[in-house]
Write a protein that binds this DNA or RNA. Structure first.
Lengths: 241, 241
DNA sequence: CGAACAATTGAACCGATTCAAGATGCGTGG
DNA sequence: CCACGCATCTTGAATCGGTTCAATTGTTCG
């Protein structure tokens, strides 16, 4: 099993693992279509820890696919408080929420050394008109995004939220072919806490309790899920899907 | 100003007010295109209070546009607890989260007598391939949906959440041409509370405090916003825009 | 008019936050 | 390689916001 946060595929431009490629291929993109998709996908040099791909309020032109590492998207409210909207794992897209307002709502920041592919949105749209399977895939992905955002709101106790969070990571890594039981929590506790709207101390205490209860083992960034079923029950299953 | 929860337009099938039509028209749908869009939009008889349009787990075939009244979408977690994912006002779409899983995730329930248009999704997809402006509009709408779901997660104190909720209603009604300061809260306190993850008692207390502080006036379902700016400040602006 | 439900109000309670120390791990330079 | 210093994480005790429970008032509708 490849370790997480590594480059997804030797030639990411082949798009064999990213959110677009994964489902495009089986539904009828031939080599020519695929080649055309690849022309609008641009690779970029890696970002260092804490560097940003784009900033809030900048004009929207591209969506991004994570090639390696993890990114977080962050908004800052009127009082200057940061809120982490989401974490983005290898193969996942981000920047979709900028389509409607035509500017980036959040800022995207690398967690550790990480890299992306940029995809010009206007060109992607044009291409989607020509390739029905690509259009379908895009609709599907955005629908999934809606669902994901909503799922977060369902849980309300701190236990539920943290258990749910771990499970979504597990599921998402599994979907990309990584282990679903051994996870590298590259993001600091503070970021997890912020994302789930709770105090970092609470995250710490809960991890300890989950460990004492035999649900998982955790040492710094190294998380192993021991009892997946119990975790799902705790989360109320909303995120386990 | 037309009162809320009324039929949006005499002939909704003309789609002049719904989320699809509103932006389709200015971007180049001619009469023939429009006619084609209308052929896949079906009107239905009104639903009575508490009747459901679809239930969770049912196979997905259509998305829906609210013609009149209000609908709520509800999920039930593993422990049997209900959670209200969202409220849907006249002109808005719902059911988009079912595209990815190809089955309805939530159940959609009428709040008071309400009516919808159903739109066959496969046909809509096909049509979108032929009409680039329709495709663009759909992407845009789904992006907006993502943004909306995320915005909810940003607020964390009860004050912020309730203020934010009122502001989103205000904004959304305004977008459809209704008053943004006089709102009919057709949904019971219990539902508002559930949606925002708080106790109905808290909603009650907060409404009272907001009223004492001169932010708004409320009597049962009749809400008037007095001090919009103060509300926005309270909410932290995340929902204001 | 009266029954059933919805909303309000008050008081006790609890989960999670906050504040304040300590512990642990990590990179840097001696 | 160890020592230092910084940042992250952990742990404990006090506090607070919001919930829960219980009782009252208000509203709707047969």
């Amino acid at each position: 099993m490849a370790s997480q946060n590594q480059v997804v595929s030797p030639s990411f431009l082949k798009c064999s693992q990213c959110a677009l490629g994964k489902l495009c291929l089986p539904v009828g993109l031939d080599a020519k279509d695929m080649a055309e998709l690849e022309t609008i996908i641009e690779s970029s040099s890696p970002y260092k820890d804490n560097e940003s791909v784009y900033l809030s309020e900048q004009p929207f032109d591209r969506i991004f696919a994570v090639k390696s590492g993890v990114f977080k998207t962050v908004v800052i409210d009127a009082n200057g408080n940061e809120h982490i909207v989401g974490f983005h794992l290898p193969g996942e897209l981000f920047g979709l929420d900028a389509i409607y307002p035509q500017k980036y709502i959040s800022s995207a920041v690398a967690l550790g050394t990480s890299s992306v592919c940029g995809i010009n949105y206007n060109e992607l749209e044009s291409l989607a008109t020509k390739l029905p399977s690509l259009q379908r895939q895009l609709f599907s992905l955005m629908s999934k995004e809606v669902h994901t955002s909503q799922a977060l709101a369902v849980e309300h106790s701190a236990d539920q939220k943290l258990a749910g969070f771990i499970l979504t990571l597990s599921t998402r890594y599994k979907q990309r072919g990584y282990s679903d039981t051994r996870i590298n929590l590259i993001m600091p506790r503070r970021d997890i806490a912020n994302h789930l709207n709770m105090a970092a101390e609470t995250v710490s205490r809960l991890f300890k309790r989950f460990q004492n209860d035999g649900l998982l083992e955790i040492k710094r960034t190294d998380l192993s899920i021991i009892n997946m079923e119990a975790l799902k029950q705790l989360a109320g299953c909303a995120s386990g899907q």
